[in-house]
C-alpha cells in the first residue's frame, strides 16, 4: 500500500472520483495549471482538461454561487476556497442558498457539492491564514461538516463527501497537509460520514478532538498513559451530524470529558458537545466537561503557539478533570 501525505491523499481522492464520474468538476483560484497553492489539485488540469478543472475569477461568492448552479444542473462540483479565512464572502451563498436549497424547494432540488478548504493555525499564517470557522457552518441546518485528521481518512471521507447528496464543508487541517503520512489504499474506498473513530482506548477520561488537534491530543493521551492515566481518544471526523453514539458510549464508561479544538471557545463546537453530553449523560459525569480551545481573540501571529492548545495544556486539563 502506498504511503501518502494528506495532500497526496486528497489529490488522489479527487482523481479517483473524476475518473469514475464525469460530473465531478474542480474549480477555484489557482487550482488549474498551477495545481493549487497547496498542490491539492496538481495534475488534474493536465489529466481532465479545462472543462473539468478550471480557475475562476478571484471571488469566493462567485465560486460558491456558480458551483450551486452547476450542482443544480446535475454536476458534482468540488470548489476550493483557498483558505477557510476567505470563505466569508461566500457565507451568504453557503448559509442562505446552498444549505437551504433542498428544503425550500420542497425536496425538488438538491445541491450535492463539496467545498474543500484548508483551515487552522500553526503555520505562521496570522489572522487570515489560520482561522477555524467550522462552528459557523455547524450552526447551519442542511450542511455537513467534515474534518479529516489522517491521509487515509482524508481520501475516504472526501470520496464519501463528493458522493453525498448533501452539501459538505470539507475542512482540511493544513498544518498536517505534509506533516502526517500514512498508508493509503489505491483506487476507491469510502470512509463513512457521520462516524467518529476511537483512536485510543482507556476508561478514565474521554478526550474528543478533530483535525490537526487530533495528533496533539494523541500525543497527550500517550503521555498520560505513561503517567498511568487511561484515556479514550475520539476523532470526530464529521462534526455535523456528529457521532453521538460513540461519544455517549465512551462518556458512560469514563464519566469525564475533555474537548479539544483550536477555534475560539465561546459558541465553539465544544460548547455544543458539552451541552449534548450534559443533556444525555449527566448522571454518568464525575466532573464538569472541560474545553481546551483557542482563546476568544483573533488568531495571533507571533504568539500562535501560546494560543493553540498543546500537549501540556491538554494534559493539565485531563488531570484537572480526574482530580475534580
Amino acid at each position: 500500500m502506498p504511503e501518502m501525505n494528506m495532500i497526496q491523499a486528497i489529490n488522489d481522492a479527487l482523481r479517483v472520483e473524476m475518473e469514475r464520474d464525469d460530473r465531478v468538476i474542480v474549480m477555484g483560484e489557482d487550482i488549474g495549471k498551477f495545481g493549487g497553492v497547496f498542490r491539492a489539485t496538481q495534475g488534474l488540469y493536465q489529466q481532465f482538461g479545462e472543462d473539468r478543472v478550471f480557475d475562476t475569477p478571484l471571488a469566493e461568492a462567485g465560486i460558491i454561487g456558480t458551483a450551486i448552479g452547476m450542482a443544480l444542473y446535475g454536476l458534482r462540483p468540488v470548489p476550493e476556497i483557498q483558505f477557510a479565512d476567505y470563505i466569508y464572502p461566500a457565507f451568504d451563498q453557503i448559509v442562505n442558498e446552498l444549505s437551504k436549497y433542498r428544503y425550500r424547494s420542497g425536496g425538488q432540488y438538491s445541491c450535492p457539492l463539496t467545498i474543500r478548504t484548508p483551515y487552522g493555525g500553526g503555520v505562521k499564517g496570522g489572522h487570515y491564514h489560520s482561522q477555524s470557522p467550522e462552528a459557523y457552518f455547524i450552526h447551519t441546518p442542511g450542511l455537513k461538516v467534515v474534518v479529516p485528521s489522517s491521509p487515509y481518512d482524508a481520501k475516504g471521507l472526501l470520496i464519501s463527501a463528493i458522493r453525498d447528496e448533501d452539501p459538505v464543508l470539507f475542512f482540511e487541517p493544513k498544518r498536517i497537509y505534509r506533516a502526517v503520512k500514512g498508508e493509503v489504499p489505491k483506487g476507491e474506498y469510502l470512509v463513512p460520514l457521520e462516524r467518529a473513530t476511537l483512536v485510543r482506548e482507556g476508561d478514565q477520561c474521554t478526550v474528543i478532538a478533530y483535525g490537526a488537534m487530533l495528533h496533539m491530543a494523541r500525543e497527550t493521551v500517550d503521555l498520560a498513559t505513561k503517567k498511568g492515566i487511561r484515556c479514550d481518544l475520539i476523532d470526530l471526523r464529521t462534526l455535523l451530524p456528529f457521532d453521538i453514539d460513540t461519544i455517549l458510549q465512551s462518556v458512560q464508561k469514563t464519566g469525564r470529558v475533555v474537548i479539544v479544538h483550536e477555534a475560539p471557545r465561546t459558541c465553539g463546537f465544544g460548547a455544543e458537545l458539552a451541552a449534548t453530553i450534559g443533556e444525555k449523560a449527566l448522571l454518568y459525569l464525575e466532573a464538569p466537561v472541560l474545553r481546551i480551545t483557542g482563546f476568544d481573540t483573533p488568531f495571533p501571529y507571533t504568539l500562535e503557539h501560546d494560543y493553540l492548545p498543546d500537549a501540556p495544556r491538554v494534559l493539565a486539563g485531563i488531570e484537572k478533570t480526574l482530580n475534580f
Partner: peptide, 25 residues
C-alpha cells in the same frame, strides 16, 4: 424553474452556474 429566495440578487450566480454547466456538458 429554480427556487425563489428573498435576499436580493443571490439567484444570479446560480443562473451563471447552470449556464457554465450546460456549456461543460
Amino acid at each position: 424553474v429554480l427556487s425563489v429566495s428573498s435576499p436580493v440578487g443571490t439567484q444570479i450566480p446560480h443562473a451563471v452556474g447552470l449556464a457554465i454547466a450546460a456549456k461543460i456538458r
